[in-house]
């Protein structure tokens, strides 16, 4: 139920530029942080800039960061990605830890628009041993035979009937008797 949604566009999982086949390239290009120097709503963002921003930049040298002080505005972060996507996010009344967490979230993204996934997997090679069909690993006997054929008219696994079993018992008995007769004859010959 939860995965059905009419308004959100749907699609299949893809990654830009074959990312991850060689090394993983950080897709985040630049971040602009707009904040107020005085108002309380950007207190956490200001704390982040004072204490954690240099660590963030040292850990992620491929990301450019702009700081824009804007008077009496709530803090806003705009992130831009290599595929040209822009992501706008409001950081109103965020704490220092919260800003750290959400900036890391923006960093780990690739910049794909949020869509509903129809499958949670993507393969270039759907089959390696060949696609299965009902005729794989079957003997080609069917191709040669002409129909109607008595062998294929019968059910595959027919249980043994009572008459059949009786017949077999009778035959076994006959064999036994004949052997006994032979033995008797031999013994008679030896005696003679």
């Amino acid at each position: 139920m939860s995965n059905k949604c009419l308004l959100i566009p749907s699609g299949f999982p893809r990654l830009p530029l074959k990312n991850g086949i060689g090394r993983v390239v950080c897709q985040l290009k630049r971040i602009t942080i707009k904040f107020c120097k005085s108002s309380g709503s950007s207190q956490g963002v200001r704390n982040f800039i004072e204490l954690d921003l240099l660590d963030f930049t040292n850990n992620n040298p491929e990301v450019v960061i702009y700081l824009k002080p804007r008077r009496h505005h709530s803090p806003v972060v705009i992130s831009e990605y290599l595929n040209g996507e822009r992501h706008y996010m409001n950081f109103h009344n965020f704490t220092r830890d919260n800003t750290n967490k959400w900036l890391n979230f923006l960093r780990t993204r690739v910049g794909i628009k949020t869509i509903r996934f129809r499958k949670l997997q993507h393969t270039e090679l759907p089959s390696i041993q060949g696609v299965w069909s009902p005729f794989t690993n079957k003997s080609p006997e069917l191709n040669i035979t002409s129909f109607p054929n008595e062998k294929f008219l019968q059910p595959k696994h027919l249980p043994e009937s009572a008459t059949e079993r009786l017949r077999k018992m009778f035959e076994r008995q006959k064999l036994k008797e004949s052997e006994e007769m032979k033995m008797n004859n031999k013994s008679i010959e030896v005696q003679q």
């Binding site: 993983v24 780990t108 993204r109």
Partner: peptide
């Protein structure tokens, strides 16, 4: 395998 990308899904409704 390597982990390439971490994100959030679209908003799902759980009713």
């Amino acid at each position: 395998g390597t982990i390439v990308h971490k994100d959030l899904t679209h908003t799902k409704i759980r009713y």
